[in-house]
Amino acid sequence: MLTIKDLHVSIDGKEILKGVNLTVNPGEIHAIMGPNGSGKSTLSNVIAGRDVFEVTQGEISFLGKNILPLTPEDRACEGIFLAFQYPVEIPGVSMTNFMKAAIEAKHAYHGTTPPSAGEFLQMIKEKQQLVGMSQSLTGRAVNEGFSGGEKKKNDIFQMAMLDPKLAILDETDSGLDIDALKTVAEGVNTLKTNDKAFIVITHYQRLLDYIIPDFVHVLHDGKIVKSGDKSLALELEEKGYDWIK
């Protein structure tokens, strides 16, 4: 589904990713761990197409298509979703309008008919329950006045609405208390199917108690230095990152 080959990425002339290779197949959950500054968030932003990063070498293909020339919105419409480390606030824009615009954009991209107003509202209701959002979102502005946990849950809700093929969770667990963490993890587990893939970026092992990864990769100094199964995460928890460096 996603193939990254020898990816080199710089920002302001400083190289951050120094040859990343990664293959993600449908149905798989990959965890990417690593110390601060190892390039984890850069990797997720580059896959999503953020233009402040410059890809100097290598390739990223998604479902057989080279996505490097695509805009972030086209990548999103192709089915890549990023749950942000810091979801932003968009004051005054209601969640209903925001999601409506997003879903309409996706349908326009694929030339399909968007849901009717009634279907759409029903969908909001269902997905909200699915990801366990207790408070009604529909009247609220995008992340405005949301607590840290609510913002993260809101991203998971958006993921449920947009039904991506590949979802990247960029430190979604940071700043979450254990209950919010469980809610987010349950959301992800409910959405998991055989044709979807997840990349979970995290510092800590604890999220991986709830979202069980098929693969764990350690990113250090812009390179994946070690890959393994979920036991690697436990080992990291115990020993820290130093032994890998």
Binding site: A48, G49, R50, V52, T71, P72, E73, A76, C77, F81, L82, F84, Y86, P87, V88, I90, F98, A101, A102, I103, A105, K106, Y109, Q158, L162
Partner: peptide
């Protein structure tokens, strides 16, 4: 730019 990128990532031009 963050706000625009957030919207872009959800599919909006």
């Amino acid at each position: 730019d963050d706000q625009i990128f957030y919207c872009n990532q959800r599919g909006l031009k």
